[in-house]
Design a protein around this nucleic acid. Structure first.
Lengths: 215, 215
DNA sequence: CAGATTGTTGACTATTCGGTAAAAATGCAG
DNA sequence: CTGCATTTTTACCGAATAGTCAACAATCTG
């Protein structure tokens, strides 16, 4: 007892194989459930069932519902910002924007649950990530906005406000995941047609990029 | 007893003065609460407190939580579609789009709670308005899309997919209400500066309209 | 294999929350 | 003012749900 018990304080010990597997299973299940029902709308039982696990067992890995939620956040946040981080200040402005938009769209399409998860969090007032938004996100956006502003001043981009440009890109690329139900209601099975995704990408790129190209 | 009791069956009787006032107070409070916490995240007690009313008293006016929610929906849905309905097939395409975008933005700014309310409903799978979306909304969008397609075929608009254009407009105009917290985190008090709203409108219009103008 | 540790579960608790019943208070028509 | 209808409140109930506990099972280590 003694050793393991001592080592585990600070929660900094390396997890066992089983812990690693089960935590991952739980986080996957939790992302699905939270993304549909939001924090309060989701129950631990739902998550446990989706993870094929009893509730007490799940609570053995994450002591509280909040901890599960925090775990999902942590596992998703960084990946979510990766496309923005990856914008290259030395690249061709329009090409960089095209790439950023494409990657954001691709991520929303591949992980719609993650997109909806964030949308829920923000809609509910971002209680868990308010600090993150005001620090990390803000810094990143500030940096990339400076970059865009430079592109504009160099005459390589139409005079757009960088912040509004990013908001516009976020809004549009996440819309197809977050408002999926509405889009399906309007377009019907069209959405599942092969090629729909590519068509969407083209439609967005064509309008957004035309709006920022120098003319 | 007899008369009033008889008249009230079918629920079709005209409400008393007190009923009219209190229902309205409840719906206002409910919109605020639902828009932040979603359906399941909101409690009747919260709404009752915001309405300065005891829970049983509130339930005297709306028998169930679902009824309150439905009441809010009904009170908001029509108004929400009004800008789209108001697009004029005989107007100048770019001018009509400018007007539509402007009106949507204005509505989101004036009633951000309504915008967030819908966003929550859709995010959670639109359980209460799924039929509405597939019938009324779809019909309206289909009609307006035909109109846009005609504009394109007449060479008065760049060749854009009408549906994606509308999705793009919805996404962007509602983003500032729905993701308000995130935008405030990035921009800070900037958001409350007088003129910010106008600047936002200009930024959006400039990018979106440039994307659809014939060149 | 034996002992210790880690993992799993059924049964339970406390609380929150949607909703009800019935009495008390208020409003109102004649 | 009187009597009836409407409105409001007090005191509840039952279901759902976050979280606990103690006993049991699997696994790991020497």
């Amino acid at each position: 007892m003694a050793l393991a018990e001592k080592q585990r304080r600070e929660g900094s010990e390396k997890p066992t194989r089983i812990q690693e597997i089960n935590r991952s299973i739980i986080l996957d299940a939790a992302l699905d459930v939270f993304s549909i029902y939001g924090f309060r709308g989701s129950t631990i039982d739902q998550i446990a069932e989706k993870a094929s696990m009893s509730k007490p067992n799940l609570l053995y890995y994450f002591k509280r519902k909040d901890d599960i939620y925090a775990g999902v956040l942590e596992a998703t946040l960084d990946e979510w910002l990766e496309p923005l981080r990856g914008m290259n200040p030395d690249g061709d402005p329009v090409e960089e924007l095209r790439r950023y938009i494409t990657r954001k769209l691709e991520m929303s399409a591949r992980k719609p649950a993650a997109s909806r998860f964030f949308a829920n969090e923000i809609l509910h007032g971002a209680p868990h990530i308010h600090d993150f938004l005001k620090t990390e996100l803000k810094q990143l956006v500030d940096a990339k906005s400076t970059m865009v502003r430079r592109w504009v001043s160099e005459g390589r981009l139409a005079p757009v406000d960088p912040y509004h440009l990013f908001f516009l890109i976020w809004a549009t690329t996440q819309h197809y995941a977050d408002f999926d139900v509405q889009i399906r209601a309007v377009l019907g099975d069209e959405v599942d047609r092969p090629g729909f995704y590519e068509q969407t990408t083209q439609a967005l790129l064509s309008i957004l990029l035309n709006g920022v190209k120098v003319r």
